[in-house]
Design a binder for these strands. Structure first.
Length: 418
RNA sequence: GUGGGCGUAGCUCAGUUGGUUAGAGCGCCAGGUUGUGGUCCUGGAGGCCGGGGGUUCGAGACCCCUCGUCCACCCCA
């Protein structure tokens, strides 16, 4: 057993999986940049207070933060998500609105790891700040849906809800609290504890006894303001116009307390177990203000790479891309011919690799096979004498001699006909 | 954070009621083929049986602790 292993909830991502990750990020970049979102790279840690603004009832903040004091005595934390950082960046730089950005990178939450749940986990996402327009809500949701489709996913389910405005949320929270308190005896002890902290979160409970109580709970849509309701209607209408299928789920509250109005979640129906949630987001119209900026509306979403890729596995789509070289050079003379040929080929845009330590031809051919190269170039003493190279298209069982000076042309020709 | 399953070779896993030098397949290396891979054959390397303690004449198997991992809850991506 090795002395050192990765920390719990972290892991190395090796080929071919790593190539898939990169491709994933590239597809995302293409999708959102085509909609006018620019790339932002926020720092991985910030002043702890930035994240505390996410809400005192948010478990991500209260229980799962990776925080520490740095050598200068600052109390900092690894980011648990990126929305807060983006809003902080907005306040710090005051870009013109609407400010539409996308990001990609790791976040950190101190949780008990499971499949699809890591302490360091990657998300991609977008945030759009400075516009109230319900059409923007629909655009953001449509963008996420398009991205899933671009990956090839079909079994993605969209749930949507509105939490009303700040006052509505509070009003509903009290109303719900009254209802739940009345029925407290029927709730599980866990939910009774949750009820103390944040009544809205009780709606998330999947426990049987709670489900019965929740089924009879008042719905938030009945207690939101006319303007918030109007906003929600407009979002739905726009989604209909874009032909995006959704299900209104008035129990959907989500774990981050900053959400106002529109909130949504994508689940994969191809996945089972606890990690079906592959992405989500919503409006957070009070967050910029909470971070000391001017009242600025905002909306965004984040998708988990791991879970989305698990969904891809389940649907057997979005395979890892091939990263093979084009050519493998076998040199049984001294290795220097391979060195020079590789250099020449690479300089001319041909992907080339070789073996080292002057191993036997058999061993080098085996490496050539494993490399996935389409052709092997073989150089032995005979070739060196005649200034030729043996060109062997892999898989054909045939090979032919070419003049060394014709290398580039012959290689290109052989690659083309493949 | 709570509860449960599982930790044996690089990987996937066997390992009888505790009994001598711990196995297989795949992968890796070498040879069969002194210039040729993908098939086949032969051989080889590679394990403090997750770690620590205990029971026993004897532990990979049993007990305790610990760490890791997986599953459920919780939370969420």
């Amino acid at each position: 057993m090795p002395e050192f292993k990765t920390s719990p909830g972290t892991r190395d991502i090796l080929a071919p999986h790593s190539a898939r990750w990169r491709a994933f990020q590239e597809v995302f970049a293409r999708t959102v940049e085509a909609a006018g979102y620019s790339y932002i790279i926020p720092p991985m840690f910030e002043d702890l207070d930035v994240f505390l603004r996410l809400g005192e009832a948010t478990e991500v903040v209260t229980k799962e933060m990776y925080d520490f004091h740095d050598k200068g005595g600052r109390h900092v934390a690894l980011r648990p998500e990126q929305t807060a950082s983006v809003c902080r960046a907005f306040v710090e730089h005051r870009p013109t609105t609407p400010w539409k950005v996308w990001y990609s990178g790791p976040n950190f939450r101190y949780e008990k790891p499971q499949q699809g749940r890591y302490r360091q986990f990657d998300q991609v996402g977008v945030e759009a700040l400075g516009a109230d327009d319900p059409l923007l809500d629909a655009e953001v949701i449509a963008l996420a849906a398009k991205f899933y489709a671009d990956l090839g996913l079909r079994k993605v389910h969209l749930s949507i809800n509105t939490l009303g405005d700040e006052g509505d949320r509070e009003k509903y929270s009290q109303q719900l609290s009254r209802y739940l308190t009345t029925n407290e005896k029927s709730l599980t002890s866990e939910s009774r504890a949750t009820l103390e902290r944040n009544p809205l979160r009780v709606l998330d409970s999947k426990r049987e006894p709670d489900q019965k109580v929740i089924a009879g709970a008042p719905a938030i849509r009945d207690s939101i303001s006319a303007t918030a309701n109007e906003h929600f209607e407009a979002v739905l209408q726009s989604l209909d116009a874009l032909n995006i299928k959704y299900e209104i789920n008035n129990r959907l509250v989500r774990g981050l307390d900053y959400y106002r109005r529109t909130t949504f979640e994508f689940t994969s129906t191809a996945l089972e177990a606890a990690h079906t949630a592959i992405g989500g987001g919503g409006r957070y119209d009070g967050l910029v203000e909470a971070l000391g900026g001017p009242a600025t509306p905002g909306i965004g979403f984040a998708l988990g790479l791991d879970r989305t890729l698990l969904a891809c596995d389940a649907e057997q789509v979005f395979d890892a891309p091939q990263t093979a070289v084009d050519v493998f050079v076998v040199d049984t003379v001294n290795g220097r011919h391979a060195q020079e040929l590789c250099h020449l080929l690479r300089s001319n845009g041909v992907r080339a690799d070789r073996a080292y330590d002057l191993r036997s031809m058999k061993a080098q051919m085996k490496s050539a096979d494993r490399s996935g190269a389409q052709i092997a170039l073989i150089i032995g003493s005979e070739e060196v004498e005649k200034a030729t190279i043996m060109l062997r298209p892999m898989g054909s069982g045939e090979q032919y001699s070419i003049a060394r000076k014709d290398l580039l042309g012959e290689v290109r020709k052989a690659l083309d006909t493949k």
